Computed example of a mutant assay.
Amino acid sequence: MEELCYSALDIAAVIASMGLGCQAQAKFLNRIWENERPFLQKDYRDNKRQMILDVSHWLTYFSDKPTIDTEFPVIQKDAQTVGRELEADAYITETSGLDLFFKSVRLRILYGEGKPYIRVKRRTLMGKYGYKRLSPALVEYFHQCIYFYHLQPYVRDYAECQIEDVGIDEMIVFRVI
């Protein structure tokens, strides 16, 4: 389950998608530290300073990603001259893991300034992450994330549901339980 815990990159991606200002970012990070520590990766559970520094690093990256990506080959070459190697995937690829959706849902509901729920069509959710149909493995992963992040999916009129039972164009409402 450690792979489902929040990394600094995950938190930065959520903050970047919310468009928070500096004070709101600091408040958001403090609330995560105070209330979500069991969900943080082990490196951050006892080290608030490191969590904030690493999130800030990734936020800087997200703020100027095109420029940094164009300079990456030069940085990689410089690293090789001193005997180091940088993994391009860690810096160039988008963070589009399906677990990021569920992390974002939990954090936005609990600590965002908006509504106490998140709505999304099943087609949109699957399409955003490159899935066209529900395989048994994908359904199991949905259930694992929903359980881990203490989420409950609903359809209209607060009727609890299972994601696999919802029609492809139906709206799913997620709430934290």
Rank of each mutant, 00 (worst) to 15 (best):
K132N: 10
Q144V: 00
K42Q: 11
I15R: 02
W33N: 05
E113K: 12
P66G: 10
K27V: 07
V82G: 03
R45L: 09
V139Y: 00
G21V: 05
M51V: 08
L100S: 09
D43T: 08
A26Q: 12
A88D: 11
R133H: 11
R175V: 14
R123I: 11
Q50R: 12
R122E: 01
L53M: 10
A13S: 14
V55E: 00
H150D: 12
I109A: 00
L9R: 15
M18H: 05
I11R: 04
I15M: 08
I109Y: 06
T93W: 04
Y61T: 02
L40N: 02
M126C: 05
E34K: 13
T67R: 08
S56G: 14
I172S: 05
L9T: 10
D78K: 13
K42T: 10
I163D: 01
E71T: 06
W33R: 11
K115C: 11
R123V: 09
S17I: 00
F101S: 03
D78P: 03
E2V: 04
Q76A: 15
M126L: 15
G21K: 15
G167R: 12
R156H: 10
Y91M: 15
A88P: 14
R49T: 04
K27A: 05
F28V: 02
R45N: 02
P38V: 11
D78W: 06
D169N: 13
H150R: 15
L9W: 05
F148D: 01
Q76K: 15
Y129D: 00
Y154L: 09
P153H: 01
N30A: 10
M18N: 03
L125R: 10
R175I: 12
F174L: 02
D157R: 13
H143I: 04
K42D: 07
D165A: 14
Q23H: 14
Y44Q: 05
V139S: 04
R31P: 00
K42E: 12
D69F: 02
T60M: 14
G83Q: 11
C161Q: 01
C22D: 09
A13Q: 08
I177Y: 09
L29I: 13
I15V: 15
H57D: 02
E87Y: 09
V166Y: 03
L100C: 11
R31A: 11
D169C: 03
Y158C: 11
V14S: 07
R45E: 07
Q41D: 07
S104F: 06
I75E: 13
E164C: 04
G19K: 07
Y117H: 13
G130M: 08
C145Y: 04
A137W: 01
V55L: 06
R49Q: 09
Q76P: 06
Q41K: 15
I109W: 06
E160F: 12
M126I: 02
F174M: 00
H57V: 07
H57M: 14
A12V: 14
L29T: 04
W58K: 02
D69A: 14
K128T: 14
Y147N: 12
L107W: 07
M51L: 15
G97I: 00
E34C: 09
D99G: 06
M18R: 08
A8H: 07
H57K: 15
V155T: 15
A8M: 04
V139Q: 00
P136D: 00
V120R: 09
E94C: 08
Q152N: 12
K121I: 00
L40A: 04
V14E: 03
Y147L: 05
E94Q: 11
R122C: 05
E85M: 14
K27Y: 08
